[in-house]
């Protein structure tokens, strides 16, 4: 291939038709409350790991809806349960994380 000194850039656009959401759907079967997230961010604001690792349950759910690999976020979770405490929709975030982790096994 000829070297032009520049290349086609990878598009950052999220293509919802190609975003595989099987994992999200599987998770929702086990944790149906995952669907009720309204992206308020309480979970991330209170997360022990967030400020050091970028962990955010909100981003985990959003990432799954967009077909992204959320394992890097997930691995930072320490399962302390603080996010469960603050979620206004009462999402059992601890169970959500555990169910999701199992799906990657």
């Amino acid at each position: 291939m000829m070297d032009f000194g520049f290349k086609l850039s990878k598009s950052a656009t999220i293509d919802l038709d190609r975003a595989g959401t099987e994992r999200y759907e599987k998770l929702c079967a086990l944790s149906p409350d995952a669907r009720t997230c309204m992206a308020c961010g309480s979970c991330s604001a209170t997360c022990t790991a967030a400020s050091f690792s970028g962990m955010s349950v909100r981003k985990v759910i959003l990432g799954l809806q967009r077909g992204q690999d959320v394992r890097p976020l997930l691995s930072a979770c320490m399962l302390c349960g603080k996010c469960t405490l603050v979620c206004p929709r009462g999402i059992n975030t601890r169970r959500l994380i555990l169910n999701l982790s199992k799906s990657y096994d």
């Binding site: 950052a12 656009t13 999220i14 293509d15 919802l16 038709d17 909100r58 959003l62 967009r66």
Partner: peptide
Amino acid sequence: EDTLSGKPLKVQ
């Protein structure tokens, strides 16, 4: 824009 992701988004 999927403003929560901060990325452009398209769908058919």
